[in-house]
Amino acid sequence: MSEVFGIPLPALLGQLMLGLVNGCFYAMLSLGLAIIFGMLNIINFAHGALYMMGAVFTWIALAQFGIGYWWSLLLVPLVIALFGVMVERTMLRRLYKLDNLYGLLLTFGIALVTEGLFRHRYGVSGLPYSIPEAFSGTFNLGFMFLPKYRAWVIAASLLTCFTTWFVVERTQLGAYLRAATENPQLVQTFGINVPAMITITYAVGVGLAGLAGVLAAPATQISPLMGTNLIIVVFAVVVIGGMGSILGSIVTGLGLGLIEGLTKVFYSQASNSVVFLIMALVLLVRPAGLFGRER
């Protein structure tokens, strides 16, 4: 059997594949954070909680309403986006004129409250969700076995990331968004309803977290704490990629997932800290992040 640095090739590829799957979640979550930060100038600490809500709602939909995976894939992100609209309209909107620390505190509070409520109701032992039938089993790629569900997660999240990037960077709507990031008042004097655009941006950003939650439901333990565990790494990804950079968050998310996977193979003790080590190094060399622009 072929080996790389004494590691059997299938084991290496397996870890890389797992890393890529994790990277997909990092990318989707940091992408949402990036568009929210770009437009609202708010660090959305509730992002992990919304991801968790996405996964728990997927479980609730099936367990209590008999709504299956495919419908959840469509409906749950919409529900989370609506929740986002409510939060933005009733609370976040009041904070735009204040220091962005207040936005961070508010969303942190929202995260604590929602996680507390879900923990109270569902405990922390984890809720089971089985892989949808269409994706049970594996592909035999010749050199390794690839579980079909993982292939689906990778495909779906790459498609989501690409679509979001395309809308922001290559369409007229995206041009309004980029211009409004620079000078919202002026864009409003062009006749564009900037407050509504801000609401929609927040809704789409958190909707992405909800979608990531649905994709995660069959792949991980659904638990009220799943967001907290992930969000810290995601924030490191955002810092490494550069606050507010769309492309940066996608590339960095995927890249760090892979690096984490590799570290698991070669020096597994460091696999939980490698991301933060990279963050420290990047901050030393490029304080604005790999893709960020200095302000």
């Binding site: 041009a175 980029r178 990031t181 620079e182 000078n183 409003q188 004097t189 006749g191």
Partner: peptide
């Protein structure tokens, strides 16, 4: 609100010109 007034056909050229650097 500002955007509705603008839609009546009002164009505004600000003192600082407001050229977008990302475009």
């Amino acid at each position: 609100p500002t955007h509705r007034i603008a839609r009546l056909g009002v164009g505004y050229c600000p003192e600082e010109r407001g050229i977008f650097s990302s475009l």
